[in-house]
Design a protein around this nucleic acid. Structure first.
Lengths: 233, 233
DNA sequence: GCTGCCAAGTGATCAGAGTCACATCAGACA
DNA sequence: TGTCTGATGTGACTCTGATCACTTGGCAGC
């Protein structure tokens, strides 16, 4: 499918580029649609493109020696992944899996690297990006230290709420939310345990399922307090 | 204490700088000695310097809401910490604690940032550095997914062995190793559990304590196999 | 509408790590 | 040399979350 400069403009990182560069980049890029469970980037491989997510949701996952899945982070629209090798030329460290049908713009690694060399602003943005990811992973790691399981789940749920909805602080909607399994591997829990926490949350009417594609959080304030450990389920 | 350009030269990141810059940086930097348990960098604070470790060992730690310690990474001599805000001007995300009496060169953040702007090679190196830390954290996270506790401990131990000793593959020595507690928080385990794993390792004569300041790994090969899950304790 | 498939819901059971409460040990220090 | 402190070592007990083995439910495709 054809990639237009306007499409690239959707992504904060690329927005700052001169339109000539955008034009060129658009020509070299491809637009792909991935179904659920598809693998967007392979671990251990030197991938030759960076993936910009336009629509859907991705998850970075790793596997332990014994084949157990470990969830690392979620990728939301506007964000991208596979950028590590821009810096160190190393292989992609983790798998990137599609959680919800995803529309992805694949931008050649080399082109991006060239732009990066010519464009200090882009280096700055990419640096900020790595820093952000590092902060994110640090936070995610600290979640795992929490002894209270429900709190862990609530924190993760809270992370999935968009910033704008957090401000309003009323109710929120998470579109095509991760499955219990996908949340479980983020938090080092079993799928059943996550299900049981959700059962509890639903019984108190803190969250509600709107079909399979929407999770309605009816009491955002309560969820926050649960996440902060100010309340117990 | 006085910082000489030669001292700065010890650090790979700074080695590439022109000697004039080094000279200047040296004048602005301070050399500090920290005792065990001292706090080198505070979480949540906009620290104004980057810490280069000359001697000793540091640990990045975070705390959960309920005051539980979470270990994030170790810092070994030659390495540095507190560099995130170079990129995003944000606060230091985690505490940096001294594990073994540390000699630290504190370099002003602003000076480093200036050098970074003037010096593409340094940007490159710092980018590689962030990338490396991300890979490290990804790996450390995957350790937590392992269901077998001894394996987890062995992996962590294996990480503490220096690269040069891994090549020789005979025996190795870890100088002033982290305490059981410090290892425990890295692996989401209780201190007692780590102690029990060490007991097992010692009973099979895989590791041995040489006083409190040295941990002798007598069977490096076995340790590796344990870490890889090819063997069980 | 039927079938299949995957996600979610649920109870019973169990193992394994956390917790508690000590004892012990080694080095630091006066 | 005695004392203190922090690190280890260890047993007993608890209890929580994993596991297993199902059922149920919802959606997609035929």
């Amino acid at each position: 499918m054809v990639v237009t400069p306007e499409l690239l403009n959707f992504f904060p990182l690329l927005k700052t580029l001169p339109s000539s560069s955008l034009m060129q980049l658009a020509q070299q890029s491809t637009l792909l649609k991935f179904a659920r469970r598809a693998v967007v980037l392979n671990a251990g491989v030197k991938e030759d493109h960076v993936c910009f997510l336009f629509e859907g949701r991705l998850q970075g996952v790793d596997f332990t020696v014994d084949g157990r899945e470990v969830g690392l982070y979620f990728v939301e629209p506007g964000d991208f992944c596979g950028e590590l090798s821009l810096f160190d030329y190393g292989p992609q460290p983790e798998y990137i899996i599609v959680l919800a049908t995803a529309v992805v713009v694949c931008v050649p690694l080399e082109s991006l690297r060239d732009l990066m060399l010519a464009n200090p602003l882009m280096v700055k943005q990419l640096g900020e990006r790595l820093a952000k990811r590092l902060r994110q992973m640090t936070y995610q790691r600290s979640l795992l230290g929490m002894p209270n399981i429900s709190q862990r789940v609530c924190c993760q749920l809270w992370l999935l709420v968009s910033e704008s909805e957090k401000v309003a602080m009323n109710s929120a909607i998470i579109k095509s939310p991760p499955t219990h399994m996908e949340i479980a591997i983020m938090l080092n829990l079993s799928r059943e345990t996550v299900t049981r926490v959700f059962q509890a949350l639903q019984s108190y009417d803190i969250v509600r399922r709107d079909g399979a594609t929407q999770l309605h959080i009816t009491q955002l304030q309560t969820l926050k307090e649960l996440a902060e450990g100010k309340k117990e389920l």
